[in-house]
Measured scan of single mutants.
Amino acid sequence: ESETFDVELTKNVQGLGITIAGYIGDKKLEPSGIFVKSITKSSAVEHDGRIQIGDQIIAVDGTNLQGFTNQQAVEVLRHTGQTVLLTLMRRG
């Protein structure tokens, strides 16, 4: 069981404050995608409180990250504006 949710964030001096990890899993058993690996102290993400380590980032400002490499996803996140809309999925 999984839930998908949107989080809109405004960057602070730390930026968004997440590091991400790309993961290619076994299609049947484990998900592939871009996941939140860590959250920086005092960052926008930590202050917001809704995003957790292990959440999958589905889209950034409407750009679907399906099939993106870790590096491609980093580039998408790097080129966002001051306000960012993240679409995430959390597995229950």
Rank of each mutant, 00 (worst) to 15 (best):
R78N: 12
F35T: 07
R50I: 07
G17W: 03
G15D: 11
L88A: 04
I58M: 10
G62L: 03
E3Y: 15
G54C: 03
G81V: 01
K37V: 05
S2I: 15
M89G: 09
L86N: 00
T63V: 13
H79N: 08
E30D: 15
G67Y: 05
I58G: 02
V60A: 03
K27Y: 09
Q14R: 13
G54P: 03
A73V: 09
D55R: 00
V60H: 00
K11L: 04
S38M: 05
L29A: 15
A73I: 07
V36T: 00
I24S: 15
G67M: 05
G81S: 09
I34H: 11
T69M: 04
T40A: 14
D61Q: 03
F35L: 07
T63M: 11
I39Y: 05
I39T: 03
R78F: 06
I18E: 02
S2A: 12
I18H: 00
F5K: 02
Q71K: 13
K28R: 10
Q56C: 05
K27F: 09
E46C: 07
F5P: 01
Y23P: 09
T10N: 11
L77P: 00
I58H: 02
L65E: 02
A44F: 08
F5R: 01
T4Q: 07
V84E: 04
L9C: 07
T4S: 09
T10A: 08
T19Y: 03
N12G: 14
A59F: 02
T69F: 04
L88S: 02
V45K: 09
T40E: 15
K37C: 06
E3V: 13
E8F: 09
T83K: 15
S38E: 13
G67D: 07
G15M: 05
K27V: 09
A44T: 10
S43T: 08
G33R: 12
V74N: 14
T80G: 06
K27R: 11
R78M: 12
S42C: 11
K28M: 10
D6Q: 11
L86T: 03
Q14F: 12
I20D: 05
D26K: 12
I39M: 05
L65Q: 01
Q52F: 07
F68Y: 13
Q72F: 03
L86Y: 00
V7R: 01
L86E: 01
Q71P: 08
D61E: 00
E3D: 12
K37Y: 04
A59T: 05
V7Q: 00
I51K: 01
E75P: 01
A73W: 03
T69Y: 03
M89S: 13
R91I: 08
T4F: 12
A21G: 14
S43D: 05
E1S: 12
G67I: 02
V36K: 00
T83V: 09
A59P: 01
G22S: 15
G49I: 02
A21W: 08
N12K: 08
R90D: 00
G62T: 03
G17K: 00
M89N: 12
T4G: 03
G15K: 12
V60K: 00
V84A: 06
Q72N: 07
N70D: 14
G67L: 05
E8L: 12
S43N: 06
R78I: 07
G67Q: 07
L29K: 14
D6G: 05
Q71N: 10
I34V: 10
L29H: 13
S2N: 11
G49R: 07
Y23Q: 15
E46A: 09
T83P: 02
T83E: 08
G15F: 04
I53E: 10
G22P: 14
A59H: 04
V36H: 04
V36E: 09
I51C: 00
L88V: 14
Q72G: 08
R50T: 07
A59W: 03
N12Q: 09
I57S: 01
K41S: 11
G25S: 13
H79Y: 06
G81L: 00
L77C: 01
K28E: 14
F68G: 05
A44C: 12
Y23H: 13
L29C: 12
L16K: 01
G25L: 06
T4P: 06
V74C: 13
D6C: 11
R90G: 01
T19E: 14
V13E: 15
Q52T: 05
R90M: 04
N12H: 10
Y23D: 15
E8H: 14
F68V: 10
M89P: 02
T69W: 00
E3P: 08
Q14A: 12
D26W: 08
Q14G: 13
E1N: 14
E46G: 09
Q82R: 12
I39D: 00
T19N: 11
G92H: 15
E3C: 14
H47I: 15
L9W: 05
H47K: 12
L85H: 14
K11E: 04
T10E: 07
L77T: 03
E75W: 03
